[in-house]
Design a protein around this nucleic acid. Structure first.
Lengths: 233, 233
DNA sequence: GCGCCGCAATTCGTATCACTATTAAAGAAC
DNA sequence: GTTCTTTAATAGTGATACGAATTGCGGCGC
């Protein structure tokens, strides 16, 4: 959720270079040389190379002798890399990234809710109901920050309970979208009563093992979010 | 689609080490040292470090002074990393990985088809119909290999036409799933007539700008696949 | 003009050394 | 004895230097 580990030098180089490339500040085909990176960031070749390796593994650049380090076209990037997602959310592509991630949520979360209703273990289902009860309490109290935290917990848990590791792997992404939405003021300052009710329905349907109900309720939640985003143009 | 670039040494180390870790051959918490990796693969420290950096960026391991390079628990891995997906498809977790990816497809592709019907540019819609016609022809001729290729093209194009970069980013994954399904003999040796008809419906609905129809037809396709996979236990 | 060849730019790979962070154990204080 | 402090060992981190390999480009020969 928070920024990457800045203990190592190559991570600091990445933290500067990655967002710049992710923001499209360099046209596809733009060439760096290791030497330039060394000078620009005041680091040794070892560090510059390590940073380039990571960028290369995300398919942001490729690196060949005699040619240098070249920026690849956007459509070759590994857009699911959480680090890349974070970089893009931090930059000028923010709303664009938020939009595509929200559509992804809209596709996945209903299926995840259905799977959770089918497969989640007993004890954990109760946990979902508990989180929802806490949401109702903080929602009424108007504590937005605490509410966001619980909201994230709720969606994370649904994804994890789906028993599908790919769905579970999206929980970080969903957390960033929810947090980003609030940070960017795309959220009402009081949680909408209907959204709260829908969360309660999801929790209850998962608890009672009703996949179709859980799916429909979750779909209502995410569709509302997609619509709200579309209204912004 | 094919295996990673073996031109560089660190990629060769990755190609050996990555699949082993991905297959769970080392328990979470297992410790490597750089020195051991150097010896084991007969490479210099620089190369060993670069390989570790990439593994670290996928959250397969983390590396700290005095401690070595430790394997992280599975639920922290970046499961959407295409390279990791490939490693797992190659190993003993193959069916498990195929199953979770298929559920992901089932969630995403119907939404992608709807989005394509809404937003795809004119010329490209026709392209989809053309691919479908070719599918019908090779399907009738019984050329399984050519059919698989067209099937992959079809689903890739739908994902791309959705106009959502995240959906488009899954096209490599979908290609691997389709190819893996055939390679693993989870496919009938003649394409099922109903599946073919459904693809035709998707193409026509996208061409005619009918999101709901495209979504329903695509959902029928992927649900059938999920069911077939579940029957195998 | 066309193909071949060699130059030069750059990454790739190796080797080595000093530095730093981390941990655990030894030792000192109470 | 218990707890706090110091110290020492260990491994990753970062810097530097150099030779090898690769390949785009320009020039040379025909």
């Amino acid at each position: 959720m928070t920024d990457a580990d800045h203990r190592t030098l190559h991570n600091r180089v990445l933290a500067a270079l990655g967002p710049a490339i992710a923001a499209g500040e360099f046209a596809p085909g733009h060439v760096f040389t290791l030497e330039r990176l060394e000078r620009e960031y005041g680091v040794s070749r070892t560090v510059a190379r390590e940073a380039v390796r990571v960028l290369e593994s995300m398919h942001l650049v490729y690196s060949r002798p005699r040619l240098g380090v070249r920026v690849r076209p956007q459509d070759e990037w590994s857009v699911f890399d959480p680090q890349l997602i974070r970089w893009r959310l931090a930059g000028s592509a923010r709303t664009h990234q938020l939009r595509s991630l929200t559509e992804l949520r809209a596709a996945v979360e209903p299926q995840a809710a259905a799977a959770a209703a089918r497969r989640a273990p007993e004890e954990e289902r109760r946990r979902l109901v508990e989180i929802n009860e806490a949401m109702l309490a903080t929602g009424a109290a108007g504590d937005l920050e605490a509410f966001l935290d619980l909201d994230i917990q709720f969606h994370r848990l649904v994804l994890r309970l789906s028993g599908n590791e790919m769905f579970a792997g999206l929980s970080g992404v969903v957390a960033e979208v929810l947090a980003g939405r609030t940070a960017y003021d795309l959220m009402p300052h009081h949680p909408r009563p209907e959204a709260l009710r829908l969360h309660t329905h999801v929790a209850a349907a998962v608890r009672d093992g009703l996949p179709a109900v859980a799916e429909a309720a979750m779909r209502a939640i995410v569709d509302e979010v997609v619509e709200a985003l579309e209204e912004l143009g």
